[in-house]
């Protein structure tokens, strides 16, 4: 059993210690948090409830004890880069007003296999070109090229690191039920997309 001594600690430290203990523990490990501050304890309890952790609580000599078993059912986000990570240094190869809009997972009309191959090649080449777009917007089946298991996602991620804004249509992600499978880009709404498109000087639809 892991004992977390959060006595004498003020908010939000007991909570952070609890969180850290959960993340660093193996399945079925028991954790006990000891606190001497009622508010801190109540906040930890609320957090555990919200995170789907079943705990037992007791008070001993004015100290609160909370114990629970890590069962793998915790609803705690492990993904750290969720929204708005601090932008890295903007690459000066980015051309203002240049936007690439990907409206399908295929490039051009005709054979689907060929279309998929072409778009793969386009995306993988795009990161090598002289000028990068300010934004790449993916919608309809276009969002699928951002799926983690596609090699295009690596090129997209690379371009994101260089300062390209990658925007994914949220409605499309929901429609194709892909939320769990996408780890890059910013999931956005039609207002943002319409706004970006309206401000673009040069929109490329490959």
């Amino acid at each position: 059993m892991k004992i977390v001594d959060a006595r004498g600690k003020l908010c939000p430290q007991p909570l952070m210690m609890t969180r850290k203990a959960i993340m660093g523990s193996s399945k079925n490990e028991e954790i006990e948090i000891v606190m001497d501050n009622e508010t801190a304890c109540s906040n930890v309890e609320t957090y555990l409830t919200e995170s789907n952790v079943k705990y037992s609580a007791s008070i001993n000599n004015g100290e609160q004890h909370i114990s629970f078993v890590v069962d793998g059912e915790e609803k705690i986000d492990v993904n750290k880069e969720i929204v708005c990570p601090i932008p890295e240094k903007i690459n000066n190869n980015i051309r203002e007003g240049y936007v690439v809009a990907i409206k399908s997972e295929y490039m051009g009309d005709g054979d689907i296999e060929l279309g998929a191959l072409l778009l793969r090649a386009y995306i993988n080449t795009l990161s090598e070109t002289d000028f990068l777009p300010t934004s790449i917007i993916l919608y309809n089946s276009g969002v699928k090229i951002a799926l983690s298991d596609r090699d295009t996602s690596k090129s997209l991620e690379e371009m994101e690191k260089k300062g390209v804004e990658l925007i994914l249509c949220g409605t499309c992600i929901d429609f194709y039920k892909l939320k769990q499978k996408v780890k890059i880009g910013k999931i956005s709404n039609m207002f943002v997309i319409a706004d970006k498109l309206s401000k673009a000087i040069n929109i490329v639809y490959p």
């Binding site: 939000p12 957090y47 986000d77 929204v83 708005c84 990570p85």
Partner: peptide, 25 residues
């Protein structure tokens, strides 16, 4: 829509670590 909310940098990371103010509760 929670995923549309504009957020300051590092905030989701701090919340993820349990760095959550008492007022939030």
């Amino acid at each position: 829509e929670s995923k549309w909310l504009p957020v300051l940098p590092q905030v989701m990371d701090l919340i993820n670590q349990g760095c959550i103010g008492g007022a939030t509760f």
